[in-house]
Computed example of a mutant assay.
Amino acid sequence: MKTVMFGDQSVPAIGIGTWHMGDKSNRQGDEIAAIQAGIEAGAQVIDTAEMYGNGNSERLVGKAIKKFNRQDLFIIDKVLPENASLAQLPKHLEASLRRVDTDYFDLYLYHWRGSIPLSETVEALQAAQTTGKIKRWGVSNFDLMDMEELLAISGGNNVAANEDLYNLGSRGTEYDLQSWQVDHHIPFIAYTPVAQGDRFGQDLTTNSTILEIANRHDVTPYQILLAWSIRNGNVLAIPQSSNPQHATENINSGDIELSAKELSIIDDNFPAPTTHAPLDIL
């Protein structure tokens, strides 16, 4: 299984996303089972946020991980921009920790940029790290100019990751951001890595090229899309699923090796970007 390095810690390159999970009580049993199936299949990373269902996703994660050794997991949480000040971030971090029922987060992200000065947010994140309540901090929905600004701030070079939208139908970050992060040893986290529809007007999972490659590997088109997203070794993908079998298949995608010819065929059908484009955000 492919892995991604966060400092000196290696984690499997396919994790578990939880956006849109935890809101409906009649689905929580399946959702908990799906998270647990993903962990049992080899996932370590679980990604959540205080924004997701106003804390419902965090509570769901807390229930799902009770049966596992916390030290075997890598939990990512996120703070909303309006809560990322020196005064508010500690309070919201504590609330998130309580909802997930854990003493620390392995990675805590600034969810997107807001009106609070970036320097103040970095100071608040650095302070949270010194308490031991977060092991690392990072950002989300940052483009190249944002990352360059971040690294120019005192303490900003301690950023441990950037999480952005990335899938075969949304390749814009490949033009300059992803290579810049590789050069600066900053892992890239891909949210919505299978896409919710795509900008070509078709479902990626029904594309004939993807279906043909999936049939060749005897896997699902979702698995090919995930294997493609982590092909370069610096990307952690966090697909979401409320179905235990699908969740297991997601994690198993980390074992799929796409050939150079297959990658070239995919590029022919879904060309890489040739110019910088505005960051895609959901």
Rank of each mutant, 00 (worst) to 15 (best):
S259N: 06
N215H: 12
A37Y: 13
Y108I: 02
P239I: 01
V45K: 06
Q129A: 08
A127L: 06
I35P: 10
N269G: 12
E149S: 15
A13K: 01
A34L: 09
K261S: 12
D255V: 05
I224G: 06
E120K: 07
Y166D: 01
D268W: 02
A152Y: 05
A41L: 03
D164T: 12
I46E: 08
T209R: 14
A277Q: 15
I186N: 05
S140N: 13
E148F: 02
I213F: 05
N141G: 05
A190Q: 06
Y175G: 04
I266G: 00
N141V: 01
S140A: 10
Q126E: 11
N158E: 06
A43D: 04
H276I: 15
A37N: 03
S25L: 14
Y108L: 00
T275L: 07
L282F: 07
Y175E: 01
P271Y: 01
A260V: 07
S154D: 13
S229D: 01
D72S: 15
T18P: 04
D106E: 13
P12W: 08
S179A: 15
L107C: 11
L118R: 10
L73A: 07
V159D: 01
G138Y: 03
F200S: 06
L151P: 00
Q178N: 09
A13M: 02
S264K: 07
P221N: 00
S96F: 00
D164P: 02
G53E: 11
V182A: 10
D146L: 05
Q196H: 14
G55T: 09
V100D: 07
